[in-house]
Simulated scan of single mutants.
Amino acid sequence: METDDLDSLVEQLRGKNATFRSDIIQGAGGRQILLEDPSGNLIELFEPPRQA
């Protein structure tokens, strides 16, 4: 799932007691974090790199 503001989305979800598999990681291709749904399935939240 792609977002343009990963920090804000993660903060909102943590406020609703969402479970994450990791912290936000950053690489050349952007930033991501893995969210667990109630059944334990992983959902990748992704923010692409910003255009300069």
Rank of each mutant, 00 (worst) to 15 (best):
P48A: 14
A28T: 15
F20K: 00
T3C: 13
A28P: 07
D7W: 06
G27E: 08
G30Q: 10
R14I: 03
I24T: 05
E47N: 10
P49V: 08
G29V: 07
L9M: 15
V10Q: 09
Q12E: 15
G40V: 09
L34Y: 03
D7H: 11
G29K: 09
V10R: 11
I33G: 00
S39V: 08
P49F: 04
V10Y: 05
A52G: 15
F20V: 02
R50Q: 14
P48F: 12
G30M: 05
I24S: 02
P49T: 05
V10I: 05
I25H: 10
L34I: 07
V10M: 11
L35H: 03
I43D: 06
I43Q: 10
D7S: 13
I33L: 01
E47T: 14
L35A: 03
I25T: 15
D37F: 00
D7F: 03
I24L: 01
D4N: 15
N41I: 03
Q26M: 04
R14V: 04
Q26N: 13
D23H: 00
T3H: 11
I25G: 14
L42A: 05
P48G: 14
G30S: 13
Q32Y: 06
D37H: 03
V10A: 07
K16N: 11
L45H: 05
M1K: 03
S39G: 07
L35S: 02
N41S: 08
I43K: 08
I24H: 04
E44L: 12
R14N: 07
A18K: 09
D23T: 02
L45V: 05
D5F: 11
D4P: 15
Q26D: 10
L42Q: 07
Q51C: 09
L45E: 04
G27R: 02
Q26K: 12
K16I: 05
G30H: 11
G15R: 07
L34W: 01
G27N: 05
D7N: 15
N17H: 03
T3G: 12
A18P: 04
I33N: 01
S22N: 10
S39L: 09
A28R: 14
R14M: 10
I24D: 02
Q51M: 07
S22K: 00
P38E: 12
E11W: 10
M1R: 01
I24C: 03
E44Y: 06
S39Y: 01
M1N: 04
L35T: 00
I33Y: 00
D4K: 15
L35N: 03
I24G: 02
L35M: 02
L45K: 06
L42E: 13
L42Y: 01
S39D: 13
G40P: 09
D37E: 07
G30Y: 09
E44Q: 14
S8P: 10
L13P: 04
N17L: 05
G30N: 11
F20C: 02
L6M: 14
N41H: 10
V10H: 06
D7V: 09
D5P: 09
D37S: 00
L6I: 14
E36W: 03
G15K: 11
N41D: 05
E2M: 13
R14F: 05
A18Y: 07
Q32N: 11
L6G: 12
M1T: 02
I33E: 01
R21A: 07
V10W: 06
R31M: 05
D5A: 15
G29W: 10
T3I: 12
T19S: 13
R21K: 07
S22W: 00
A18N: 12
F20E: 03
G29M: 11
V10T: 11
D5V: 14
